[in-house]
Amino acid sequence: MTLVIFAVLLWAVGFGVNVVLANGPARDTGAVRLAVPLIFGLTILGMWELIVRGMQVSTVILPPPSLIAASFAENLGTLWGDFVQTILKGALSGYIFGCGAAFVTALLVDRSDYLRRGLLPLGNFMAALPIVGTAPILVMWFGFGWQSKAAVVVLMVYFPMLVNTVAGLSETTSMQRDLMRTYAATWGQTLWTLRLPAALPFVFNGLKICSTLALIGAIVAEFFGSPTLGLGFRISTSIGQLDLGMVWSAILVSALSGTVFYGLVALAERRTTFWHASHRGGR
C-alpha cells in the first residue's frame, strides 16, 4: 500500500514540476519543451511500476516496466531477428516497392485525363477500405515467409500513395503553367522543374501515412501465419505462453521502429520541402 501512496506522491511531484516549468519564464525554450513531455512519460512509468508492485498485480495481466526492460535486455538476439524479419524484410521491402509502384502509376495516370478521373475516386475509395483484410488471402498465395507480408504492405500503401501523388502533381497554379508555356518547355522539363517539386509536400505526406500503414500490414499479416520469427508471431505466441514481458518487449520494438521510420521520413521531408509554407515558421 505504501508503494501506491508513493505513486500518488510521484504524480504530485511530477505534475508540480511540469506546472512550474510550463508556466515559468523559460517555457518556450527547447529544453523545457523537451523536458516536460519526458518528465510526464517518466512519471507515468514510475507510477506504473509502483502501482503494479504495490497492488501486486499479476505479471500475467500487466508486468512492471522493470520486468519488461529485463526481458528486453535478455532477449535482444531474438528481438533483433524479429526486427529483421518483420520490419526490414516485410515492411520495408513492401513499402519501397508499393510506394515506388504508386509513384510510377501516378506519373502514367497523370498523362491521361480519362485515367486520372477514373482512378482517383477509385483510389480514394480503396484508401479508406480495411485492406489488412486481404492478409489471409495473400498469406495463402505467397506462403508464410516475408514475401506475403511484403505483398500485404504493397497493397496497403499503394492507394494512399497513389492518391497523394496524383493530387500533388496537379498542385500547380495556372500562372506557373502559363510561365512554362511561354518558355515552350517540354512535358519532361515541366515535370522536372515545376510539377515534381510542387508535388513534394504531398508525396511526403503520402510517405508518412504509408510508413505507419506498412508496419501495421507487416505485423497483422503475421497473425495469419508466419515462420517462427517476426514481431507479430512473437506477440501472438508469447501471449499463448503468458510471457507478457516478451509481449511488451516486442511491442516496444514495433513502437520504436515505427517512430524511427516515421522520423526518418519526416527528416527527409524537412530537408527537401523547407520552402513550403508549413515549414517556414521556425526559420
Binding site: M175, L179, T182
Partner: peptide, 26 residues
C-alpha cells in the same frame, strides 16, 4: 516572349538565382 505576371510567381523551392536561371535551363 518574356512574360511578367501580376504576381511574381517565383518557385519557392528555388533560390532567386536559380529562379532566374529557370528559363535558361529550359
Amino acid at each position: 516572349y518574356g512574360y511578367v505576371f501580376q504576381a511574381a510567381g517565383l518557385y519557392p523551392w528555388r533560390t532567386i538565382g536559380r529562379n532566374i536561371a529557370l528559363p535558361l535551363e529550359i
